[in-house]
Design a protein around this nucleic acid. Structure first.
Lengths: 209, 209
DNA sequence: GTCTATAAATAGATAGAC
DNA sequence: GTCTATCTATTTATAGAC
C-alpha cells in the first residue's frame, strides 16, 4: 500500500494502483474508467474489484498515499535540528520531491481542490492539516529565534504549494501553448522554480519586503 | 454570449450557460451531467441541445468566456498610461476581479490545467497567451524605465495566478478542514491575498530580494 | 421555444468458471 | 488469482409533438 511500483514484475494490486493513479490524474474521478484502468494494468475489470472494494475506494487510497507521503517528508524536516531557514528550504524541497516522485500528484491535487475535497476522508484531511501545521511550527521556531516575522502560515503555504503544483501540472499545457505560438515556456526548470520559491519565501519571512 | 446572467428573467440560453458553468466547476467536464444542468436551468435536456451543439461545445464556450474576460482585463491594464508598478497591481487586481465575477472560473481553470488543456480550443489558447504576454509587456516597460529587473514572466505569472486560484478555489476545502479540526483557515480575506501578492510581486521585480 | 419519450452507447459492479 | 459474460443503471443525444 505504501509505495507501489508499476514494473512488469509488480504484483497485480500494485499495477492496478499505478494505472489508476495515472487514469485519475488524466481524467479526474468521474472521468476515470475502470475498464481502462484494468487494461493499462494488463488485467481485466473483475480484478480491480478483487483488489479494491469500489472505484471510490481505489481513489481514496491513492489520495491517502499522496498526502501521507508529503506529510512524512515535511514532518521530518520540521522535526530536524536544522536552522529555521534551512527548514523552510527543506519544506519546499520535500513538497517538490513528493510531487515529482508521483506524477499523478499535482493534477489530482488540483482536481481535488476544485471539487472541494469531496473524496478526501478524515485521515487524509489530517495529513493535509499536519502539512500546514509543520510549516506553522517552523515559522514559530524562526520567530522565537528572532529570525522570522510571524506571518500567516496559510498565506505562506499558498505561495509555496500553488506555484509548485502549477509548475508540475502545467507541463502538458505549456507544451500545447508552445505549439500554439508561445515562445520559451518550457525553459523553466524544476530547479529554477524551487530556488525561486525558496528565496522569496525566506525573504518574506525575514521581512525583506 | 458575452456575459450571461442567471436571473429568472434571463433568456433560457443564458440560464443554460450559467447552470452549466456551475455544474462543470463542481464536477468537472466528465462528471457534469446534462440532465442536471437542464434541471438547474429550469428546463429539460432537449433545450440544452437546442441551444448548444453538444456538451463539449457548451463547455468550450464557457472556457472561452472565462479567458476572454481575463484577457480583456489585463490587456486594458497593460495598455493604460499608469506607472509600471501601478500596472502590476492592476494586473493582479484584474485577474482577481475576473475570478470573483465568475465563481466557476477558479475550479474550472484548475481542472483544465490538470487535464493538460484538453478542451481548450485555439482561440482560447490565444487568450491565455495574451494574458502572459501582457505581463511580459509590463515587465519590459518597467525594465526600460529602470524600475524592474527583467525576470522570467512565467515565474512571476505562476506566483500570481496560482495562489489566486488556490485562494478562491479552496474556499470549500478550507471550510471542510476547519470542521476537521484546523483553526483559523477562513480568516484569510480576498484583500489580504491580493495585497500580499501585489507587495511580493513588486518586491521581486524591484529586486528587493 | 419547449416538451415527452426513447434510442444508443457506456460504465460500475458482480456471478461463476477455471 | 485471473478470466469471460452479464446485469443494471446512467448518460449523451435525438425524434417528433405542441
Amino acid at each position: 500500500m505504501a509505495r507501489p511500483k508499476a514494473s512488469a514484475a509488480a504484483a497485480s494490486r500494485d499495477r492496478v494502483f499505478a494505472a489508476a493513479a495515472a487514469e485519475f490524474a488524466a481524467r479526474g474521478y468521474a472521468g476515470a474508467n475502470v475498464d481502462r484502468i484494468a487494461r493499462a494494468a494488463r488485467l481485466n475489470k473483475a480484478m480491480i474489484y478483487y483488489h479494491f472494494k469500489s472505484k471510490g475506494d481505489l481513489y481514496r487510497e491513492i489520495l491517502s498515499d499522496m498526502f501521507q507521503a508529503v506529510r512524512a517528508g515535511v514532518v521530518e524536516v520540521a522535526s530536524s535540528t536544522a536552522s529555521p531557514d534551512a527548514k523552510i528550504r527543506g519544506y519546499i524541497d520535500a513538497i517538490a520531491a513528493a510531487a515529482e516522485a508521483r506524477p499523478h500528484f499535482p493534477p489530482i491535487w488540483l482536481r481535488e481542490i476544485a471539487e472541494g475535497g469531496e473524496h478526501i476522508d478524515d485521515s487524509t484531511i489530517a495529513s493535509v492539516r499536519d502539512v500546514l501545521a509543520s510549516l506553522g511550527r517552523i515559522i514559530d521556531e524562526g520567530h522565537r529565534a528572532g529570525r522570522f516575522h510571524r506571518l500567516e502560515p496559510l498565506l505562506i503555504q499558498a505561495g509555496i504549494i500553488a506555484p509548485l503544483m502549477f509548475f508540475f501540472a502545467t507541463a502538458r499545457l505549456r507544451r500545447k501553448m508552445e505549439r500554439g505560438g508561445a515562445a520559451g515556456l518550457s525553459t523553466l526548470t524544476r530547479e529554477m522554480v524551487v530556488d525561486h520559491l525558496q528565496r522569496i519565501t525566506l525573504a518574506q519571512l525575514e521581512g525583506k519586503l
